[in-house]
Design a protein around this nucleic acid. Structure first.
Lengths: 146, 146
DNA sequence: ACGAAATAGGTAGGTTGCTAACTATTAGCT
DNA sequence: AGCTAATAGTTAGCAACCTACCTATTTCGT
């Protein structure tokens, strides 16, 4: 960790990078009436077809109320439907509407393009190291939470 | 970038790490009635004595309305005071109250301890690489915004 | 000196996170 | 069968971000 000063260190840069990427994603996805979080839900549902809110929340590493709110907004926008699960009456399975399915390819392309912008000029081995570091940090912070 | 799938990649992990760190910081700082963002402002003001909102916003890489709102909350909590600048009538210099000054050492220690938890077991050379990668990404996303 | 451009702070509204707590349902244990 | 614990979804409230836009002040160029 190059900077030990809490006002100017790695942690702040991680947060800044995450925010900037999100803002840029939102901007690019805005033409589809989507944001990063919502786009991700679309992509997950496209992959898996139908998921409960709790499954989505777990996949996306967010809490259940967050997911409920996101799904609310998307249901209002006609992008997803909630269906009662035949196996368990607590569960609301979330599925894509036809309107949403038309967006998926564009979102994949958009996401790919943004990623390419973000990693431009960075050697693959450096990316691998950074990835390992981030994963270890996530693990470390998880341990610290106990 | 090891994962090209937008539902499961480095970008998501960056966001997750930032969020987890913040949540843990908030938890630890909560005993002082503070959150990460507010603590940072305190630390900046402790370093520099008095700063305008615009300066604070720039140092912390947030937008001015965000800073205004943070300072509002802290002013309400008796942690900072706003003073009109003698040089420029637009500017509100933000200064620490005495109550806030008593928190600074504790916040530094808390911040240091959390950082140590986050980087535990990671070799310094890996941390250096990761830092370089993050900085390059921030630069890349800045370029992509234009 | 005057007008245009830039800057500082502020308002309003939107988004996405979190926690605490609650109700309803299911799973597990005795 | 009955009770407890866990799970799914929801509500409420708080926090921190962003953008668009506005007013007031200062700076800059002519």
């Amino acid at each position: 960790m190059p900077d030990s000063d809490p006002t100017r260190n790695f942690v702040r840069r991680i947060s800044l990078l995450a925010r900037r990427i999100r803002t840029q994603f939102d901007k690019r996805a805005g033409e589809h009436g989507l944001t990063q979080a919502r786009a991700l839900i679309l992509l997950y549902l496209d992959l898996k077809g139908s998921m409960s809110q709790a499954e989505l929340a777990e996949e996306m590493d967010v809490e259940r109320p967050t997911m409920a709110r996101l799904v609310d907004a998307m249901e209002c926008g006609g992008l997803v439907r909630r269906e009662v699960s035949p196996q368990d009456r607590r569960i609301r399975n979330v599925v894509l509407t036809e309107a949403a399915q038309g967006e998926v390819q564009a979102l994949r392309a958009l996401s790919k393009a943004l990623r390419e912008d973000v990693v431009a000029g960075i050697p693959q081995e450096d990316l691998d190291v950074a990835d390992r570091v981030i994963c270890q940090m996530i693990e470390n912070i998880g341990r610290a939470e106990r």
